[in-house]
Structures are given as C-alpha cells and as structure tokens.
C-alpha cells in the first residue's frame, strides 16, 4: 500500500485498502467508531446512524462512505458524541428496553454503546409500544420489544442463509420486523437455530431458548471491557 492511502481520523492517520469504508478501515486499525447496524460480513445498511462522522466537514455514515486518501474525518468529538447519545436515547424510548430482565444484558451492543457514551437515562418520553413476543419456535425466542430495526437478521437470513425469513414492514415508528410465513410466526417458518440470522442480533430481540445466565451478569463481554476497548482488542487479535 502506498503511503498516500491514508486518511485522517480525529487527527490520526488511518491506512486503508481501496474499497474499504471509513468504518472498516478504522476498525481494522483498532479505532472504534460507534455502530449498531453494521456487521463486517454483510453489506452496509446505514440505518442506525450511530457511525455518523464528519468527512471534510460534511456529515455522513462511516459504514457507507468509502475511505479516500486525504479525507479529514472527525468522529470522537463532543458534538458527534452528543448526537450519538441522542440517537441511543431515541432507540431506548422507541422500544421497551428493560436491561435487568434481559438475557442479552452485558453482551448487548445497544447497552454497551450507551455505557461507552455515558448515556445515563433515555431522556425522552417513552413510547412504551405494545409488542407481543413470539415464542412459537422451539429453539429461538423473538422479543420484538427489544428490536432496533437494524436489519442484521434480515440481511443474514437473505444473504447467508438464503431463506429471507425476516423483513422490515411498516412506515415510520410503525416499522417492525415480520416473519416470512402466512401465520407470521417464527415457529411456522423454516428458520433454524443454526441459521446465521440466529446469531447476529446486536440486542436481545432474537435469543436462543433455554440459555440463561450461563455467564453471570457482571462477567459478560461488555462488563469486562467497554465496547470501544473490545473493538480495539479484536483488531489486535486479527492483527
């Protein structure tokens, strides 16, 4: 790679490979840019907007913006972090996120980002939407209360599992996850525990049944280290 294949992220040079997004390049370099709907194995979606950065002064999603030589990217700034906190608060009030009763607590990326950005409360009036759970599948539970509409399961099921079990339907805050079968119940779909879609939910919306507290609260991934440090360590491991 030539020396000019770098851009500046918060004043530090980041090397990149042609075709990488700003988020991918930063992640590879061990610099964390907050994100929720991104997953390295899938096409970027760009909907959560947590990774919003300023590229040469213009706001754009780091996950969908190609890295280019000489870009000046600002990410870890008080202003952008304030926006991110607001976006997290929006996600918290939009659904029903009660961490103490959630098996994902401690491994949840939404929660971990809230910790990282020091979000102390959800701030806005809660919507408290009524969202019944779907326990029809023998192995997997869907708790729609916690769904943040990141479409990772949609992409995993469509692009990896080749099943398209999930889709997002509805408009505005009525948007919700739907299951591909006439009854709309996961148990009636061809979803399987071994599907990629069963393993990508960043929050506690898609959870395996009969697994509870095998790792105690307090010892889980983001209890042990903040999500930003975790991302940096993961980059080191990949080396």
């Amino acid at each position: 790679m030539s020396d000019d294949a770098t851009f500046m992220l918060d004043g530090r040079p980041i090397r990149f490979v042609a075709g990488q997004s700003i988020l991918e390049a930063a992640t590879a370099a061990g610099t964390f840019i907050p994100n929720l709907c991104h997953h390295p194995e899938f096409k970027p979606h760009g909907s959560c907007k947590l990774c919003t950065v300023k590229v040469n002064g213009r706001a754009s999603s780091a996950c969908t913006t190609r890295a280019r030589a000489g870009q000046e990217v600002a990410s870890d700034t008080p202003e952008l972090n304030r926006h991110r906190r607001t976006l997290l608060q929006m996600l918290f009030v939009e659904g029903n996120h009660f961490c103490p009763g959630c098996e994902k607590s401690g491994n949840c990326r939404l929660q971990a980002l809230a910790y990282d950005l020091e979000m102390l409360n959800p701030h806005y009036e809660h919507f408290y939407p009524p969202r019944p759970i779907d326990a029809s599948h023998p192995d997997v539970l869907i708790d729609f209360n916690r769904c943040i509409l990141c479409a990772l399961c949609v992409r995993a099921s469509r692009d990896v599992d080749g099943k398209s079990v999930f889709a997002l339907a509805g408009r505005g805050t009525a948007q919700h996850l739907v299951v591909d079968c006439p009854s709309g119940k996961l148990g009636d779909s061809d979803f399987a525990m071994t599907d990629k879609a069963a393993a990508v939910c960043p929050v506690g919306a898609i959870l395996p049944k009969r697994v509870g507290f095998s790792v105690p609260i307090g010892e889980r991934t983001f209890d042990v280290e903040p999500i930003s440090a975790h991302a940096a360590h993961a980059a080191e491991t990949r080396g």
Binding site: M90, L91, L149, L168, R171, G172, T173, A174, Q175
Partner: peptide
C-alpha cells in the same frame, strides 16, 4: 411521512 429507515428521522420526527 418518515419512512422509518433511519433512527434520527424515524424517532426524531415522532418526538
């Protein structure tokens, strides 16, 4: 009219 795709518009327009 918000389509609901992205967080700021979906939740922001409602709030």
């Amino acid at each position: 009219e918000s389509c609901g795709f992205c967080t700021p518009c979906r939740v922001g327009t409602t709030i």
